[in-house]
Design a protein around this nucleic acid. Structure first.
Lengths: 215, 215
DNA sequence: TGTTACAAGATTGGATACAATCTTCACATG
DNA sequence: CATGTGAAGATTGTATCCAATCTTGTAACA
């Protein structure tokens, strides 16, 4: 029954965590030898995982010089969020009319998880549940390629997003927005749903851009 | 002075050609050993190139079973073109107002290449020049991530697009559309440019979907 | 002082070898 | 006849080793 998982998949998951948590700092070179050793694998699966991250823009690659953790400029950030708005608007526009009552119930369940995590100040649990909520909504569009692109854009800023959930006022604000959004979804109100998702995005872009600007 | 190019980059380029030309047929498994041998490299750089193509959706990957050339369904095709329209509209909306007179001259130069290639019935030259034309326009947006996403969507259907340029009537039609578009660009008419690009896309989606449906 | 040249070390790129897994097919079993 | 079993072969996954390239530091030189 054990899902025979390959090392490259394991390594990829671990790299995502290392990047999102900031343990691998933006701009820093990835020393393959030592990182592979610390992950307990050889360089081959590590390199394949890095290639995936390169495709997502999480790391950059320079032949014969190696992989470097991507360093987002404010311009990059603005571009990522602009792309997100194009893609997410479409996912919502297509998906909301297709939502079943069961889908909505499922979304409400996830929201309860988000709020429980928020109450116990568990930042990583909030991040995970928040992500589940939004992608459950996007997936209602039945457009897997579109969802994958949105996922990539989220990943591109994951390393910075943690700060948003760190502040309690942001958490309260977020919960309120989520509840409002559920109402719009229940009413199958496409335009309002899009507007709420946009407002949600704008909040985080302004916070994240502050973080990036600082150094 | 020789640009020391890595094998993975060379292999990646060659794989793109093999897929676009249909030499690697949709659905077919990629046998790494024989393909690597026929490309004159070992499996390591081949696998890294395949990981890039996986990220672009050009091949699919199943652990312990290998890589398979992606097989587009009509639904996939529709989704790819819908995504293209979202992204390309934005690139044009942002880029057209930024076009300099030199940019327009450059675009006209490329159009001459397209028409020369069309006149000499060189399908692959038409494909290449046509692509240069559209991406020169998209790049005016100064949004590199956006352009990269559009590129991915084009690549996803490249294996099928050749048929569009094979027919002489399509070529004549295309040239006319390009000339009309240049006029709109000169007038910096954003909405008309978007509409023309959309019409352009619609033509090819209908042709390509016929090809896919056949088997 | 500033600049170039060059060697030593660090790091990446790729070939080979072997281990792990999957697929196929013959054969036994109910 | 359908179905399960189990080896043999095919194919992929990863570790290791060496070659190629880049980086760094030192020293010679103008």
């Amino acid at each position: 029954m054990s899902e025979s998982v390959t090392a490259q998949e394991t390594v990829l998951r671990e790299l995502r965590v290392l990047i999102a948590s900031g343990e691998l700092e933006p701009g820093q070179q990835v020393i393959q030898d030592s990182l592979a050793a610390s992950l307990g694998v050889s360089r081959v699966p590590l390199r394949e995982a890095l290639k995936v991250l390169e495709g997502e823009g999480q790391v950059t690659y320079h032949p014969h010089r190696g992989y470097f953790v991507a360093d987002l400029s404010v311009e990059d950030l603005v571009e990522v969020y602009r792309i997100r708005s194009l893609l997410e608007d479409e996912a919502i526009r297509v998906g909301v009319p297709l939502l079943t009552d069961e889908d909505i119930e499922y979304l409400e369940d996830i929201l309860n998880d988000v709020e429980a995590a928020a109450k116990s100040q568990d930042v990583s649990a909030v991040t995970a549940a928040n992500r589940r909520f939004h992608f459950a909504l996007f997936e209602a569009s039945n457009m897997p390629r579109l969802v994958r692109l949105i996922k990539n854009q989220w990943d591109a800023t994951d390393a910075y997003r943690g700060v948003y959930f760190a502040a309690a006022t942001n958490l309260a604000h977020m919960n309120q927005e989520h509840r409002t959004m559920i109402q719009a979804l229940k009413a199958r109100d496409v335009e309002k749903s899009i507007a709420l998702q946009a407002a949600h995005r704008e909040n985080s872009v302004s916070v994240v851009s502050q973080v990036i600007k600082k150094p």
